[in-house]
């Protein structure tokens, strides 16, 4: 009974996360437009695009593997969301958090891109492997500082559970890992720029060079699924960062605000920076951010 109730709450949570992700995406588009001196689309444009893509009359498939891309990407987003506590200490918002969920979540982060590489390549377009290769190599690079930061936190707290890591920060913002582990936070937040795929590190789906990278052959319903997956993936990642560094959230409102603030960090960077080539971004992530991550681990160990 309790499990059924939890499934119900988590399903509602997924829907809210999708809606919030789409809305945040719309706000980001509006923000970029205002920075460039344009009016910009309405903030609910994400919902319209989603509906329009679902109402495309025919979808062209390239075989069974083709379906794996959107499916795995959405599954990765939903997986991250389901296995970390969105709201700590409130049963409906705890989702399916368990001891050691941090390892599973790190795996889910890779999941979506692997799925896109598999599914997109089934389309047979030459741009797809280029985009997928760029995405995977960039991901390998930014995982290094992020995992070093996580190792630092885990070594200090002694637990692989996001729930425990969040509870360890309870008691005011002075206890947040953002302030108590500044080096780990710096490494992780720089890695987040790569994860979100905004401006300096958006060469994966560079629309002007390799049309949209792995998604070149997808259309209609596939794109709608991908859009849903991206919305929930973005929000789930922000919730993870909130739990790890900003002390989690104890109410829905607090979660909304913290997620939005963390999201705006990568948007603020994206608004002013041009694009890195993939070798440049790899060199960047394996340079100073990785070094900061090593310092964080050393500080946590000794």
């Amino acid at each position: 009974m309790e499990l059924l109730l939890q499934i119900l709450w988590s399903s509602i949570g997924v829907l809210i996360a999708v809606a919030y992700g789409l809305l945040t995406g719309g706000i980001v588009r509006k923000l970029f437009a205002r920075i460039q001196g344009r009016v910009g689309p309405p903030v609910y444009q994400g919902f319209i695009d989603l509906g329009k893509n679902f109402f495309v009359r025919d979808n062209i498939s390239h075989g069974p593997m083709f379906y794996f891309g959107p499916a795995l990407r959405t599954a990765g987003g939903v997986g991250i969301f389901l296995f970390i506590p969105a709201i700590v200490g409130w049963a409906p918002g705890e989702n399916f958090s368990f001891a050691g969920d941090l390892l599973l979540v790190m795996y889910f982060m890779f999941f979506g891109s692997l799925g896109m590489a598999l599914g997109g390549s089934a389309g047979g377009h030459p741009h797809t492997p280029i985009g997928a290769g760029r995405g995977l190599s960039q991901m390998t690079a930014f995982e290094v500082p992020f995992i070093l930061a996580v190792i630092a936190l885990v070594a200090d707290t002694g637990s692989f559970s996001v729930h425990d890591l969040t509870l360890a920060q309870a008691g005011g913002f002075l206890e947040w890992n953002l302030l108590t582990h500044p080096f780990a936070a710096a490494a992780a937040f720089i890695a987040m720029l790569g994860m979100n795929g905004y401006a300096p590190f958006n060469v994966v789906g560079a629309p002007n060079e390799i049309p949209v990278g792995p998604m070149t052959e997808y259309q209609g319903g596939f794109i709608a699924t991908l859009g849903t997956g991206r919305a929930i993936f973005a929000i789930a990642k922000m919730i993870l960062f909130m739990d790890l560094f900003l002390g989690g959230a104890t109410s829905i409102l607090e979660a909304f605000i913290k997620v939005f603030v963390i999201y705006m960090w990568s948007v603020a960077v994206a608004a002013v920076f041009p694009r890195y080539r993939v070798d440049q971004s790899m060199r960047f992530f394996l340079g100073w951010p990785a070094l900061i991550g090593v310092v964080a681990v050393l500080l946590a160990l000794f």
Binding site: A33, V212, M215, Y218, Q219
Partner: peptide, 22 residues
Amino acid sequence: GTSRFDMERFGITGGPTPRQSS
């Protein structure tokens, strides 16, 4: 697409490939 005419305010965006264009 520029700030002077800005077609994005009508929800019109660029479609990078034929598959994603209407």
